[in-house]
């Protein structure tokens, strides 16, 4: 917290006050607790798969089944075009990218409520919790991504019309954008849910609705011109589109859109951290 000494004699290492100024965010302290973040990631991973038969294979089952369902419903029944890309690849690419965002958002949005008992007993920078969630979800994303690459190679070998481009180098940046947006929205929601629980109900179906507003099951090229502005205002749109371009080689990268997403993420994270920081001091009284 405040490390400024009051005067020459008093070298207090910590001063606890009722109201902290809004912009007093201690990232150095968070860095000090990096081992804790690593431990939380490990805990999440180990506890998720102990006493399951398939273990980490579950990471693959979920996108695979969702893809199959999308192929049946949207591809074959509804007949939504996929820019000439094999349906399985088209949907799976979108799902893997979107999944990372939605799990980050869903999991971090419950930071305060889920961890009330541990937060109520001991102090550590509360941000360590949502950050560790984002990192442990990154592990599952990586597994799904490798799985997706396997499919991609299979389809290329079969001679399908897909060609990953040089844009694939952008993927780490895209992942960073997804993580930042998920974290940003998540911590804002988690800060608000300490007082207004209604938001919890909103989040899970809100994220589902959001997916339909993002070009996951349809290509951006199919959007009528008059709606395009709305779809492009969605910060996830350029990310998902670039992700598809990078892996499947359709369309082109909208750098202006990516810049927009990046700016959006920075502002969102800044606001999120400020709110989170303010709430973390007294949320125990209201949870």
């Amino acid at each position: 917290m405040n490390t400024k000494p009051l005067n020459q004699q008093d070298n207090w290492s910590m001063i606890l006050r009722p109201k902290k100024s809004l912009f007093e965010v201690n990232l150095a302290e968070l860095w000090h607790y990096r081992d804790l973040i690593a431990m939380f990631v490990k805990r999440d991973f180990v506890s998720k798969f102990k006493q399951t038969i398939l273990g980490p294979l579950w990471f693959i089952v979920q996108p695979l089944l969702t893809t199959l369902m999308f192929v049946v419903v949207f591809g074959n029944i509804a007949g939504i075009p996929t820019d000439g890309i094999p349906q399985v690849l088209f949907y799976m690419t979108g799902i893997v990218g979107w999944n990372y965002f939605s799990t980050c958002l869903n999991d971090t949005s419950q930071t305060f409520i889920k961890n009330a008992s541990i937060f109520g007993k001991v102090y550590f920078p509360r941000l360590a919790m949502p950050i560790s969630v984002v990192i442990s979800n990154l592990v599952s994303f990586a597994i799904q991504f490798v799985f997706l690459l396997g499919f991609l190679i299979y389809f290329i070998a079969k001679g399908s019309h897909v060609a990953p481009g040089i844009e694939i180098l952008l993927v780490p940046f895209l992942v960073l954008l997804i993580a930042g947006l998920g974290l940003g929205f998540g911590i804002i929601i988690s800060s608000l849910t300490t007082k207004y629980r209604d938001l919890v109900h909103l989040v899970s179906f809100g994220v589902t609705l959001w997916m339909y507003a993002t070009p996951i099951i349809y290509p951006l090229s199919e959007i009528p011109e008059k709606y395009k502005a709305y779809v492009m205002a969605n910060p996830m749109t350029p990310i998902v589109e670039t992700f598809k371009t990078a892996l499947l080689g359709v369309g082109s990268v909208d750098y202006f859109g990516l810049l927009y997403s990046f700016g959006f993420m920075v502002v969102l994270l800044a606001i999120g951290i400020l709110i989170f920081n303010k709430v973390e001091r007294t949320f125990m009284d209201t949870v």
Binding site: L16, P18, K20, F119, V122, Y123, R281, T282, M284
Partner: peptide, 8 residues
């Protein structure tokens, strides 16, 4: 233990 902050 910094679980919560003082009011004053």
């Amino acid at each position: 233990s910094r679980v919560t902050a003082p009011t004053t």
